[in-house]
Design a binder for these strands. Structure first.
Lengths: 113, 113
DNA sequence: TACCGGTACTTGGTCTTACTATCTACTGGT
DNA sequence: ACCAGTAGATAGTAAGACCAAGTACCGGTA
């Protein structure tokens, strides 16, 4: 993972995971796998697990332990109402940034590119 | 500043400042003012100064002290070649994130909105 | 039985970054 | 002498992603 990407993911990864959970409930190993498919190939499992614990403690998800045929039981996370609110808030903040940064970029490329 | 925004700015603010400097050289007070006009109203000066010192130490900018009519001399920062490279890198990482997050959002809104 | 690889989750410590709060320093106006 | 505005610096805190290593469970193989 480039340092650039690592730093940029701070404060964004949480929203990404909430978005992933919004499509359907998932457990940690699954979330990591889906993100890696999505292009975040270097994402480390430890990061995802820590993040999931965090959003659980904040009450954004409901958790259910489901036995697995292979390995220890899975902790399946389901986005709840509070989590959906948080996801909305994430999209609002993201939209703001996205627009303003896009604007900056436009000014630049129109100015001297 | 919302906590959400604060966390999301980590790793992005540096790129934003580089982009601002790419439009034209500026000193800290000026950068802060321009960002506040741009919509980042709650951005604190201390953050910008610290960031400018950081990018100076990394060699992304050239610095020139210019006497001011009001107050102490200004430290005018000019983006140099290394800084422009870093800015390009920032845009690449930003584009990646922007695309993938946009994709996630589309999947969501098409699925259940 | 004993070992190994894949699945699944946990934890302790480090680094980076933005914030808060406070401080210095210089100028012009009252 | 004092104050507001300009301009910059800094110590300490909190948050988040990383790395590294570990635990636990299962099926297959020798």
């Amino acid at each position: 993972m480039s340092k650039q990407m690592t730093e940029m993911l701070k404060g964004i990864l949480e929203g990404i995971v909430l978005a992933v959970l919004a499509t359907r409930p998932a457990y940690g190993y699954d979330v990591t796998a889906r993100l890696r498919e999505q292009g975040f190939t270097d994402l480390v499992e430890g990061t995802v697990y820590a993040l999931l614990i965090r959003i659980e403690q904040r009450g954004f998800v409901d958790v259910e332990k489901v036995p697995s045929e292979k390995g220890p039981p899975r902790k399946v996370y389901t986005l709840n109402a509070l989590g959906r609110e948080q996801l909305d808030e994430f999209w609002r903040t993201w939209s703001f940034l996205s627009e303003h940064i896009g604007q900056l970029r436009t000014e630049l490329t129109e100015g001297d590119n």
